[in-house]
């Protein structure tokens, strides 16, 4: 009953030379809320499209419960990919109505909950007869959320669901997500680049940068490996000698560095009273990891 969604050695190349994804290995186990974190253009949507057979991988394999996802109707019915809505379609403005999307979802998703959908539509103040190209950014995001939630799919994927929402609406979404998770225990994969406020929601995170997986695992365990060490330049340099330094900044005589270390090294570091050691949060860790890469390149 519990199935894993998995990508192995996933590579996606566009136009012969643009590698959107490069050898991605990722596992999404059942009953967990995942955060898929990445900058704009990192490859999040491409990854999600490949996972849901909407894009054809150049190399690699995607499976759900051991079965290939590609052209597999039974599997695709168990996965909901709620994408960012666009007011423009291929041929021009998106003249589909809100109710068209809801109707189509009802036809395709075997677990679709119509009552839940109606409740959410009312709660969000969405007008069923309104056309997509006439909806505000906030409303577009809310429609994405309604489709995802009411799908009741065992794996529910939301691509940038809070992109168009203001801070109050975003909080409402996180609450809604946790409430639903409490009841359904389904797997959620939420892609976002708004980190600070969402970090506590994600049990696990997948960090994606330039088409490659930087890190994946338990959010808290990952973040606890990083520390910000600051103080006098010489003291800091001595304290972090031999440790993995990700980034550093200097201001006059003081210096601040981001280090990554295990529990043992941390203890040694903490015994050093000449420097200040501060914990990091997910956002700071992500920035350190991605800008660190820039430096190496």
């Amino acid at each position: 009953m519990e199935k894993t969604l998995q990508a192995k050695a996933l590579t996606k190349v566009y136009n012969k030379n643009k590698k959107a994804l490069d050898g991605v290995d990722v596992v999404f186990r059942p009953g967990c809320i995942y955060g898929l974190i990445g900058r704009n253009g990192a490859g999040k949507t491409t990854l999600l499209s490949c996972l849901t057979a909407q894009a054809n991988p150049t190399q690699g394999e995607i499976t759900y419960g051991g079965e290939k996802v590609w052209e597999n109707a039974a599997v695709l019915g168990e996965i909901c990919f709620a994408r960012e809505m666009s007011p423009i379609l291929f041929m021009g403005p998106n003249t589909y109505k809100v109710k068209d999307y809801l109707r189509a979802a009802r036809m395709y998703y075997p677990h679709w909950d119509e009552a839940y959908a109606k409740r959410l539509v009312e709660q969000f103040g969405l007008e069923p007869k309104k056309r997509i190209n006439a909806l505000s950014k906030g409303m577009l995001s809310m429609l994405t959320i309604v489709l995802a939630m009411a799908s009741m799919a065992p794996i529910t994927i939301l691509d940038e669901p809070v992109a168009g929402l203001d801070v109050v609406a975003r909080e409402q979404f996180y609450k809604l997500l946790l409430e639903d998770y409490e009841n359904t225990q389904r797997t959620f994969i939420v892609s976002t680049h708004i980190l600070e406020e969402a970090a506590t929601i994600f049990e696990e995170v997948v960090l994606l940068d330039k088409g490659k997986i930087l890190e994946q695992g338990n959010t808290e365990e990952l973040v606890s490996q990083f520390h910000y060490v600051s103080g006098k330049k010489e003291d800091v340099e001595q304290a972090v000698e031999g440790m993995k330094v990700l980034s550093q900044e200097t201001m006059g005589k003081t210096k601040g560095v981001v280090v990554r270390c295990g529990a043992e090294q941390l203890e040694i570091l903490q015994q050093n009273t000449t420097v200040d050691i501060s914990p990091m949060n997910l956002q700071k860790v992500f920035i350190a990891l991605t800008t660190s890469n820039c430096k190496e390149a």
């Binding site: 109707a73 909901c80 379609l89 291929f90 589909y96 999307y101 998703y109």
Partner: peptide, 9 residues
């Protein structure tokens, strides 16, 4: 657009 966003083959 609609069909594939909902999981058509």
């Amino acid at each position: 657009h609609l069909a594939f966003s909902m999981g058509a083959t």
